[in-house]
Design a protein around this nucleic acid. Sequence first.
DNA 1: AGGACATATCAATGAATCTTGATGGAGGAT
DNA 2: ATCCTCCATCAAGATTCATTGATATGTCCT
Lengths: 101, 101
Amino acid sequence: MTATEPMLRLCHALSDGTRLEILQRLRHGERCVCDLAEALDAGQSRLSFHLKTLKDAGLVLDRREGRWVYYSINPEALVELSACLESLAPHPERSGGACCA
Amino acid sequence: MTATEPMLRLCHALSDGTRLEILQRLRHGERCVCDLAEALDAGQSRLSFHLKTLKDAGLVLDRREGRWVYYSINPEALVELSACLESLAPHPERSGGACCA
DNA sequence: AGGACATATCAATGAATCTTGATGGAGGAT
DNA sequence: ATCCTCCATCAAGATTCATTGATATGTCCT
């Protein structure tokens, strides 16, 4: 019984180049949108869209401080996805059973 | 230097419910398309499309035997994606450096 | 050769997603 | 109060993706 819904959200969030770049920047610590916009050479609206997608998937956390909003990676999401991945690894037991013979 | 292209393909392939269901069936051993079609109650054309997507991403392997084509999970792909995931985990060093201060 | 079956591919439609530019709201500075 | 900055949200267009039905390819059997 793998929970497929969270895995779908997580994988979808990771299946975009812009979002992957965002996460790679966030590895080094939290960043505000304006900093990411400059680093990725992307419009502010576009970044906001992708950050919302990442946040809805649970992959990033946000924190407001004055005018700025700081985003950071949510390590729990990576752990969760890692667990989902393991749940896809082939069974040791009962493996290799053919079907259409 | 994370290779983002393979990760994009892998994550995109995993970001679809039908494809996830396919992989869950394949955990128990290789299956032919007709068996998956029956198990998932999906049209043959649809399954073929998703199997191609999974194959292009490297997540499954196929093997022809007579009229049937057997698909199976490629465990290396899971390992590769797992490594990509780890490469997204926050750095221990230089973490927490603020930007827009 | 011809027929039946398993699978792949193609074309067309529809749905979901991404991008862009404009608007709005919230917080600080003067 | 006014302006300015940072960010979110909306609407419209463009692109990508999934589904369906029809057609093609390949294999086996007779």
